[in-house]
Every structure is written in C-alpha cells, then in structure tokens.
C-alpha cells in the first residue's frame, strides 16, 4: 500500500490538460491532473459522468491526442517515454507490451465477425512475432488464465456466442497478451451484473498481484474502487479534488465533494425508507465551467473566496492532497492521526 519513493514509476502524469475545441466553445475535459504510479500499484479514478475520468484514461493511453479539434498539453510518461511526443507508429508499439486498456462495453470492443481466437493470435503475432502454432498455444493459455472454461473450444467461437462476463474476460485476455506493465481499465464492470462484476474485479486484482502490473481502475462505482485500489483520485469537472490512500480518503474524506458523494450512496445497513443525503444541482456544463472552485455552486460550505479563486491541491498529512479552500478540518486532523 505504501509507495516506495525510490521505485521507478511505470506511469507519470504531469499537469495533463485535454481540451476539445467544439462549436460551443473549448471544453476543458481534463484540466491539470498529475499523478504517478509504481509497479504493482492500483489507482482508482472515480467521479461522476462528465468528470473527465474516461478522457483522462484515454489521454494517458494516447488514444486521445492533439489534433485539429483536440489539444493535449502536459506530460504522460509510460516507462520513461513521453506518450504524446511519440510518432503514431511509435505510440502503437507502446500499446501492448507497455500499456493496454480494457473498455467498458465488452460487446463493442470485440470484432463481431472475428473468432475469439483470432483476436488473441492477431495481437500475439503482430507484437511478439509468434508463429501460428505458438500464438494459438499462448492464446489458449491466456484464456485459461482469465478463468474461461474449455478455452480451446472458446477459441473458435464468435463474440456473440459468449455472455457479457465471458466477453469481458476475453477482452482482459487480449489486454494481457503482451504482458503489459500498465493496465488501464475504463469502467470494466459497468455493463455487467453484480455477481459477474465481483468475479471480474477479483480477476483483475489477482492478475495485477501475479504480474506486478500497475493498474488504473476508472469507475463511477465507489464501492468497486474502495476494496481494490491502493490509492484513489476523486475527479470533479476535469480536476482532481482529492487524492490519497483509498481507505483513509473514503473513511474520512477531506473534500466536501468526496464527503457528499459517499453520503449519497445508499448503504446496505440503512433502515428502509432512509432519506439519502443529496448533492443539490447538477455537474457543470464543461464548455462554461463556473469561476473559482468548480464544485462551488453545489457546495454546502461555499464562500466568496471559493467563487473567485480556484483552489490548488494542498498536501495534507498521510500522503493525501485536497483541492479546497475549506477542507473538512475535523477529517484532516483525523487523517493526520491515520498518517502516523
């Protein structure tokens, strides 16, 4: 759980900004995010829809890059190389052995007219230069590792013949084919049923541990992130509002948004007909974000200072950081206690 400061980071993100130029104006989808990740570490990126967590995941991967309608600034280093300074062909060589991604919807991330086996052998032959037979053997082995029964038979099936959970396992197997050092999982279980969701999250956790991979788990489900990540980064309107070791952040949140978000989740131990705490209002229109703190208009503790100045991330004890002018002081003190 604790990060060794001397361990080389698999991923370093510095002041990353992704701007989409749309007819309605510039959308600052990711607005100055920094973090780093060491081998074997899992980072949870949480936030509601529109918070920029998926765009962040894709920008880190290099799938979103500067172009006519997009500007990416800042740095993403994967294994020491700056993803956004690479030529497209060089970037493609990074995908697979260095970084791989698992997407939300396992139906649309597989090619419906290709067999499961082809998806895997294609990747293996292209990136690792395996022969046909070697690729087939490795593919069967990968399917077995992700818990697919009768892997040899599954190789010949098409994606539509598999259930959602099985398809997501195939997608994970493809991502793992070149033994990446970093895995980005963007809402990997959102499209799945609860019982299957748990299986997939457990599978990802055990694969990360086995291979000492680094993983970024992007999710709107705080429960999914809570038990399976070392650190968490809470996003709101393109910025990081709070980050730190998962347990302390969720136990004693320091940012009013984290606190309100956690309180609005229905809990199993609530008695029936409990009224939930809500966050009034809606997330901001990202083409016209509010001045000052972006959570200001929905925050219970908002002051004039919040309306004028954007709060910078302040480091608080226990390896945590919070971007708020008025962090919940009680929790900071308790957080400090946890840190020791």
């Amino acid at each position: 759980m604790t990060t060794d400061v001397n361990a080389p980071h698999v991923l370093e993100v510095e002041d990353l900004r992704t701007v989409f130029h749309t007819p309605r104006g510039d959308v600052h989808a990711v607005d100055g995010v920094s973090f780093s990740l060491a081998a074997g570490e899992t980072l949870g990126l949480v936030g509601e829809s529109g918070s920029g967590k998926s765009v962040l995941g894709r920008t880190v991967m290099g799938l979103v890059a500067s172009g006519p309608r997009t500007t990416v600034t800042g740095r993403v280093r994967i294994g020491g190389r700056d993803v956004h300074a690479l030529k497209p062909a060089e970037r493609r060589r990074l995908w697979g052995p260095e970084v791989a991604m698992v997407f939300q919807d396992p139906m649309t991330s597989l090619n419906p007219v290709k067999r499961v086996g082809t998806h895997l052998t294609e990747t293996l032959r292209r990136h690792l230069g395996c022969s046909r037979t070697e690729a087939t053997e490795r593919a069967v082995d990968l399917l077995r590792q992700v818990g697919i029964p009768e892997p040899a038979r599954r190789m010949g099936q098409y994606p539509h013949e598999l259930s959602g959970g099985m398809r997501q396992r195939v997608v994970i197997a493809i991502a793992l084919a070149c033994d990446p050092r970093l895995l980005i999982a963007d809402e990997p279980t959102t499209a799945l049923d609860v019982t299957v969701q748990k299986q997939i999250l457990d599978l990802l956790a055990s694969l990360v541990a086995e291979r000492t991979m680094a993983m970024v788990l992007v999710s709107h489900d705080l429960g999914a992130v809570a038990g399976r990540t070392d650190r968490v980064q809470v996003m709101y309107a393109g910025r990081t509002v709070e980050s730190g070791p998962t347990r302390p952040v969720f136990d004693v949140p320091a940012h009013p948004y984290t606190d309100a978000l956690l309180a609005s989740i229905p809990r199993l131990d609530n008695p029936p007909h409990t009224l939930l705490r809500t966050i009034e209002g809606n997330p901001p229109d990202m083409a016209r974000p509010p001045a000052g703190c972006r959570f200001g208009p929905r925050c219970a503790f908002v002051t004039d200072q919040c309306r004028e100045a954007q709060p910078e991330a302040a480091v608080v004890p226990g390896g945590r950081a919070v971007a708020c002018h008025h962090p919940l002081s009680r929790s900071i003190l308790e957080g400090a206690g946890d840190g020791r």
Binding site: V194, T195, K198, D221, G223, V225, A226, G227, R267
Partner: peptide, 10 residues
C-alpha cells in the same frame, strides 16, 4: 450470493 457481491465503499 447477491449480498456477498455488493461492493461497499465504506
């Protein structure tokens, strides 16, 4: 099984 599958944040 359903109850055991629920991930809880807190």
């Amino acid at each position: 099984l359903l109850l055991a599958s629920v991930p809880e944040a807190s």
